[in-house]
Structure formats: C-alpha cells, structure tokens
Design a protein around this nucleic acid. Structure first.
Length: 742
DNA sequence: ACTGAGAGTTATATT
DNA sequence: AACTCTCAGT
C-alpha cells in the first residue's frame, strides 16, 4: 500500500505533489501551460483511490470526452483498472445528462429525452418563429438562437427575459424564447444549455436529490476551470457545498471561451467562494523549449487582466521561431506543405506536426496543397462525419424510435426519401399542432381533425406512422439493436434513393450510410449492455476533437481553439495577419483583444520544439482577394527569438510562384524586421482610407444616392452601413464599393 | 409536390 | 465561395 502511494507521488515536483496529496478541502491549482496539470489531476485521483476512497464517490469534470477518456486511461495505469473505470469522469454535459436521465420525471421529462444539438436547436427556432409569424428578415434565426443561448448561459429565464425586454426586437425575442422553451418541453428534448440549467433546477428544487448527489460526489475535480460558465459554476458549487472537497485546475491565461459565456471571474474569485482554500501554482513548464516559452511570455504579459505567474523551464534553448512571409494563401499553403515534408524526411513523424489556424475557412487551401504533395492529413472540426446530411438523417430515424416526440427528427426525415408528405401538408399539420400545443406525433394520432389535408397525404402519414411503430416494437424485443436498425434503415428507402440517384455525391452518401450502420454494429458489439438511447446520446455530445481519429501517420489541421490541451513537437500557426488573427469583428473592445491574445498564447504554447508562424500579403476572403498586413501579435514577440525567413527561395518542388509578386515584395522583408526599427516596418502597412466619415452623402454606381450611417473595420476591412434612397440600409466594403462623395 | 434558378446572406471559436 | 431561402415553373 505504502509502496503504491510512493509510486504515485514519485517524480512529481513539490508543488505538483501538494496538488496530488492535499485530499480534503478546497484546492485551486493555477497551472501554467505545459506544467503537468493532467498529471496532477490523474495522480490525485489515483491517490484518493489508494486511500480507499470509493471510485463512485469521485467526480471529474472535463470539457471534452477526449480529455475524460485520457484521464481514465492514465488513472488505469496507476491503479487497478476496475477501480479507474468506476470513477465518474466525463464532460459536464455528459455527466449532467446521465444524472438527468435518472431523475427526468421530477422536472417534467421522461428519461428518453432527446438532446438537441446546435442544428436541431436552430431548426426549433426557425419553426417557432414561423409559428409566431416572425420572418427571418425581421430577426435572423441565428440572432434569435444566439440570444436564447446567451440568455440561458447567463441563467436568465424566459420570464425574466420578457420582463427586461424594452425594445420591439427584445420583446419579439422574448416571445421566441418563450415559445422555444415550450416547444422543447413538448418534444421531450433539451438543448446543450438545458443540460446544465435543468440540473441546477433539479438540485435547487429537490433537497433530497441534492443531498443524494452531494453525498455521492464526495470528491470533485474540475479541469479547465477558467472556461466554466455560470451554470457550470453554480452546479459545481451546489454539489461541493456540503463536503467542500473540490479541486479545480485552470489557467486564466488560457481562457478562450468568454464568447460562449465562460466567466474568468470564476477562477479569479475562487478564494472568495471557498475561503479556506489552498492555492497551488504550477510554474515549471515541461513541454516547450526556452525560446518558445519566452515568446509565449512576451505575448501574454501584454494583457492587463491576469493572475501573475512566471513560467520557467529546464528544457534546452531550442531553435528560433520561424516567421514566413508568403505572397498569398496559396503560397502559404505550399510553404507549409514544403516544410512539413522536410520535417517528415528529417526524423519527424507527421503525427508530430500540427497546423493551426484561426478560422475553419482557412483549411481548404491547405488541404489542396497537402493533397497535391501527397501528405496525409486529418482535419479536426470542419464538416465532420456526424454533421453530414445523410448521417443526421439516419440518426434522426433512430431518434424517432427512442423519443417519438422528437419533432426536429420528424421534420428532417418525414419526406426523405420523398413519400408524398410535402410542405403544404406539413404546413396544415403544424398549424394544428402548434395551436393545440402538441408534438407532431400527437397531432398525427388525431389526423382526422386536421382540416385541408389531402386524402393522399393522410394515407401517407398513416403508413409512415405505422412503419415507425413496427420498428419501435421490434427494437424492444430484439437482442441486438444493430440488426434491427440495419433492417429499419434499409426499409426507409434511403439507401435505395442514393443508389438510384447515381451521382458521385449520392454514392458517397450511400457509402456513408453503410459506414454509420457498421459503426452502430461495432458499438453494440463492444457495449452490449448499452441501448440505442445511449448510442444517440454519445453521438450528440461528441465534439470534433473527440472524433480525431487514431489514424496514424497524418498531419493534423485544426483551429487554435481545438488545439487547447494538446501538444506537438512542431506547430505551425498560419494566417498571422491583421483582421484575421486577432480576428476583427464589429466594435472590438480591449477585452476581446485580450481574449485573442490568450488564444494566440494557447497556440504558441502547444509547441514543444519548433514553432513556425506564417502570414500572407494577399488572401481570399469573402470571395474577394484582399491585401493583408502582418498581425500586431507578431510585433509582440521579442525579435531576438525569431528566425529570418527564407522566403526568397522559391518552393521549387511545387508550382512556381508568380514572379512579379516576388520581385515587388522582396526588399521589404519582414524577415529583417529585427534589424529595422519597428516604426519603419510598420509604416509599410497600408494607410487607412479616411476620406469618408459618418454623415457623408455619397453616390454608388448601382444604388444611387445614400448617406453613411456607420463605419467599422480598419484598412481594407473598412465597411460602411449606408442608407440608400433606393433600397435602404446596406453594408458595403469601401474598397470595392466605388463610392463617390457628393 | 418537387425542381431549379436566382437572390441574398454571410465568413470565430463549441458542448 | 458556399450556403440558405424564396419563388416560379412544371
């Protein structure tokens, strides 16, 4: 026993050891990038287990399933695996969903409730707005959904929202919010935010349940605490209140989810919330070279709001950071591909390399270049397998077996493949169902009461309902759900439809449907005790990063956000340009700039050995090619840490770059910028066009006379809202608008 | 009921 | 460029 405990604390530095061995009472671990926080968390759990804490008394909350899985695996290597398996480790959403399934009836749901992902929730908003007669033009669906989600993230109920609403738009949003909540309840479904909020509702309203779970989760650990939002914070607080054995790990410098409601105050206020807490700082970095760490430090120290800490490392100095100037995004992609290829011929595996970017849109050019040079890659995010139409359709069919009230699933597939239940029919049905406050399935059971329906449509609906019921029956009685599902999907005619279409795209879809069916089969083979409801839930709560395949020998492409928590020997960060990173949005404030800077910090600290930053002079954005200038962030890195780029040398193994662009740009090398004064270097940046100001009367070749109402953006990004006499308000990019002042 | 053309909109990150 | 929505024609 003692031996095992010694084993668990072996090799930890003194601060890490404190984090591992302080079993009781609140602990906050401020863990700098690469300081071994996962190690501390897993060893802490192992330490608890070795002190005879029962594994089902331990709750470990993470943000991704991948992190949870990794945690479990690492605990398994420290203690007996059968113990490790029983620890409740998972994402907030999946753990909370698990609790809610057991207690759903207490808050008006059944345990079969469906989890609506962003798409489903968007569909729900659209439908609700249509019922209310609010068009997309009055309030965009997107805006409405965001408003609802952000209200929920701030724990503003529909009632409170309605009370606070003053403008017409807010009042309409309040209506939408209210109807949306009704709709979800009616559909026996919850969106992502509800999983958090409903748990709080449950814990607050039912003392017995609260005490049960407080008692159950005697030890709580939270990873990435800096990214918790208000509902998460409250839920943790409720659960930890009785025993106060809470250990949170976080780094304020890596808080990058403010936009989705993460509240950095949660970490800054920990001491206030738990007065008797211990604070432990992990400041030794085991990941990166001195150079990379110094660069990261020179970036993050520009932020005003932060907990002071000094990261240091025993690692070697390492190579300087490469900065590559490129002509355009194609050139950038080629340069990256060339270097990736070079690294892979010089002792690195492609698994060691990641290319990061700010926005998913940047991946396509990279993909093309990589394909051309035969470099295998995997993309995290983007169009994931589970977001494909055909896959969502198959999953919707399955969802309807579990929860017949799931209207979003119903609408998706009721006429896919076409079975004569078209929009007109659905319009009548929906009119009926929404006025009677019922879900589709209930409406169908009273179909004769719905007026204006064609006999043909009624028959089609009845047939379809009967078909669903047959399989709802079958699935209950069958031993292996996978077999029933395969037969069920076959009978829907989906496969046949794709085959008959016989286009490249449809055959691809056909293939994907078969793929998902075989996935389902293997899911039940490995988890025979689980149900289709479990399968569906697992898929809906899966994030892109979880999907990241084990396919080895591939380069990884992903956004900087997705890279959080990962590390690679070699990291590229592409698109280091103004307006792109930091990403320019309307009325950007200092706080948002600081979040962008933290994001850059996260990107930089992913690298263990080599860091390469690239930027381009031109880039296709918005369908047009725009002139770009280097990011401000580049200037924030100590110039001594940066290598002179070799961008003069053409990438000969690929298509030759356009010579004239090359000649023109050659003497103003950013690579020499450590030798030229900052001022001179930055004078290269295109001057901002200031010839227009708000209130100017202008003329546009197409729209005629108008008045500038509002200006935003900088340089080439400068946009104006112009009120035209002819067509009203319009948002135009000044560079292309060819305005004439009158 | 379905299709296709055309218009219009939109480009941050995610459970 | 890519996507969604709308509307007119079949």
């Amino acid at each position: 026993m003692n031996n095992r405990i010694a084993e668990i604390t072996k090799g930890l530095n003194s601060e890490q050891e404190k984090g591992v061995t302080s079993m009781n009472g609140p602990v906050m671990i401020v863990a700098g990038a690469g300081s071994g926080k996962t190690r501390v968390l897993t060893h802490r759990i192992a330490y608890l287990l070795e002190h005879d804490v029962s594994p089902d008394k331990i709750l470990a909350l993470t943000f991704t399933n991948k992190a949870a899985k990794e945690m479990k695996e690492r605990i398994s290597s420290l203690v007996a695996p059968h113990l490790a398996e029983r620890v409740w480790a998972g994402t907030f959403h999946s753990i909370f969903a698990r609790i809610l399934r057991q207690t759903a009836s207490k808050i008006g749901y059944t345990s079969d409730f469906t989890i609506y992902d962003t798409d489903d929730s968007m569909g729900a908003v659209k439908r609700v707005m249509q019922n209310l007669g609010i068009s997309n033009q009055q309030i965009s669906h997107q805006v409405a959904r965001n408003a609802i989600s952000s209200a929920k993230n701030k724990m503003v109920t529909r009632k409170e929202y309605a009370q606070m609403a003053t403008s017409i738009q807010e009042k309409q949003l309040a209506l939408i919010y209210n109807e949306y909540e009704n709709y979800l309840q009616l559909n026996n479904s919850m969106d992502f935010d509800d999983l958090l909020i409903n748990l709080i509702v449950l814990l607050r309203q039912d003392r017995e349940v609260l005490e049960r779970y407080q008692n159950r989760f005697k030890y709580i650990l939270v990873d990435e605490y800096q990214d918790t939002n208000r509902p998460q914070y409250i839920a943790i607080k409720l659960l930890a209140e009785a025993h106060q054995n809470i250990c949170v790990v976080g780094d304020d410098a890596q808080s990058i989810y403010r936009w989705r409601g993460a509240d950095i105050q949660n970490i800054l206020h920990f001491k206030k919330d738990y007065p008797y807490s211990k604070i432990i700082r992990l400041e030794q970095n085991y990941r990166s070279t001195k150079t990379i760490l110094a660069a990261a430090d020179s970036i993050i120290k520009r932020n005003k709001n932060q907990i002071h800490k000094t990261l240091w490392t025993d690692n070697p100095e390492g190579e300087k950071i490469d900065l590559l100037r490129c002509n355009d995004d194609f050139d950038e992609a080629i340069k990256i591909a060339t270097r990736v290829d070079m690294f892979s011929r010089n002792g690195y595996s492609l698994n060691d390399i990641a290319v990061l970017y700010r926005t998913n849109a940047q991946s396509m050019v990279l993909e093309n270049a990589l394909r051309k040079s035969n470099i295998p890659y995997i993309i995290v995010g983007g169009i994931s397998f589970y977001k494909r139409k055909e896959i969502k359709d198959v999953l919707s069919y399955i969802r309807l077996l579990v929860n017949p009230k799931d209207d979003e699933a119903y609408y998706r597939i009721i006429n896919e493949p076409p079975r004569g239940i078209g929009q007109t029919t659905l319009k009548h049905v929906r009119h009926f169902s929404s006025s009677k406050q019922m879900c589709l399935s209930d409406a169908f059971s009273r179909i004769t009461e719905i007026g204006d329906l064609q006999q043909r449509a009624i028959v089609a609906i009845r047939d379809f309902e009967a078909f669903l019921n047959v399989y709802r029956e079958k699935i209950v009685h069958e031993e292996n759900p996978a077999n029933v599902i395969a037969e069920y999907i076959e009978t829907t005619g989906l496969l046949e439809m794709y085959k008959e279409m016989n286009t490249e795209e449809s055959l691809d879809r056909w293939n994907n449907v078969l793929q998902i069916l075989s996935d389902i089969k293997s899911f039940f083979k490995t988890n025979p005790e689980l149900t289709i409801a479990d399968y569906i839930q697992q898929i809906s709560l899966m994030s892109d990063i979880d999907e990241k395949d084990l396919k080895s020998g591939s380069l990884t492409l992903m956004t900087v956000h997705s890279a959080k928590g990962l590390e690679y020997p070699i990291v590229f960060i592409s698109g280091m340009e103004r307006g792109l990173f930091p990403l320019q949005r309307q009325d950007m404030h200092e706080e948002e700039e600081e979040e962008e800077r933290r994001l850059f910090y996260v990107g930089v600290t992913r690298a263990k050995e080599r860091l390469l930053l690239t930027y381009a002079d031109r880039r296709a954005r918005f369908g047009d090619v725009s002139e770009q200038s280097p990011s401000n962030f580049l200037r924030e890195i100590n110039p001594d840490l940066i290598n002179r780029p070799e961008y003069r040398k053409p990438a000969t193994s690929f298509t030759a770059p356009k010579p004239k662009l090359f000649a023109k740009k050659e003497d103003t090398s950013f690579g020499n910028f450590s030798q030229i004064p900052e001022q001179d270097y930055y004078s290269q940046i295109e001057p901002v066009n200031v010839s227009f100001k708000v209130g100017d009367i202008i003329k546009h070749p197409h729209f005629g006379k108008g008045k500038i109402m509002h200006l935003n953006g900088v340089g080439k990004q400068l946009k104006a809202v112009i009120k035209f006499d002819s067509i009203g308000n319009k948002n135009l990019m000044l560079e292309y608008a060819k305005l004439e002042k009158i």
